[in-house]
Design a protein around this nucleic acid. Sequence first.
DNA 1: CTCGGAGCCTGTCTGC
DNA 2: TGCAGACAGGCTCCGA
Length: 290
Amino acid sequence: MPELPEVETVARQLHLSLAGQQFCGAQVFDSKLTIVLPEQACDLVVQRVFRLGKQVIIELQSREHSYSRRWLMIHLGMTGHLQWHPLFQQVKPEKAVTHLRARFTFDHGTLDFIDPRKFGRAGFYYHLEEITPRGIDPTTNDFTLKALEALLAKSQQAIKVWLLRQDRLVGIGNIYASEILFAARINPWRQAGTLNQDEIRRLYRTTRQVLKKAIRHRGTTFSNFQDTDGKEGGFQKHLHVYDRAGKPCLKCGHSIRRMAQQGRGTFYCPGCQEEKRNRSLLQRRRKRCA
DNA sequence: CTCGGAGCCTGTCTGC
DNA sequence: TGCAGACAGGCTCCGA
């Protein structure tokens, strides 16, 4: 499940492999994926590869008209990954690659988009604004304590659910939402708009720290994340709560719990994340609703 | 406007 | 061993 750190890892790697290469074409093997090639596609050269939210963006520039740019966007969805084969490596025929959705060819190699669950997307765009997410990227300078405060204000959503909203902050998914809240010692059911100054400050700090550390470890691998060389990430060794239900908390020894929030697994430590206070709050709220 | 739930999709796990 | 059903979660859409 590629989130911000995984996509960042892929984009950085891909930049090293792809920058300066000429685009040669695309083959699509999934009828759900509609990839319309831009005009004069083979005149395009890769300028850079970067991340926008959870999307990998390949910036292409026309050789003839340097002002003319196109953007190839790839969203990996849940199970998608990109595999790069340099020209000297033998490329498997498309039927031999399971779950191959699309194949992009460049003058020095081939980029395979593989996605078992078909939640991924890809396409060419003429304007970057079309695919620029509304939310703030927590790794940029736009993400400030003030900005976070303003975003959180008045929201009645549970903070864990709130963190997954891409129209507020971009890039945080289920793994890092649980990990960030654990590091910030905030209960996942707390209403986002009710966090106090101290909690917002902790949330701000841990959001930056957790994502930064995950990027340093090249992301988290569970069942399927791979980088463009097929290597796994290393952050799963540093997880405190995610996928650790029933195991002891590394800080306080309490048993880590798994509960569902809007159909998604939330992992948290009842010891570190102040469950008792929250429970009574919840009970009071339920009584009021009843 | 906000919020919650359904639906997409398929490999993997669990229970019979 | 084999099968059925539940589960996982990225996102979008729809309705309250």
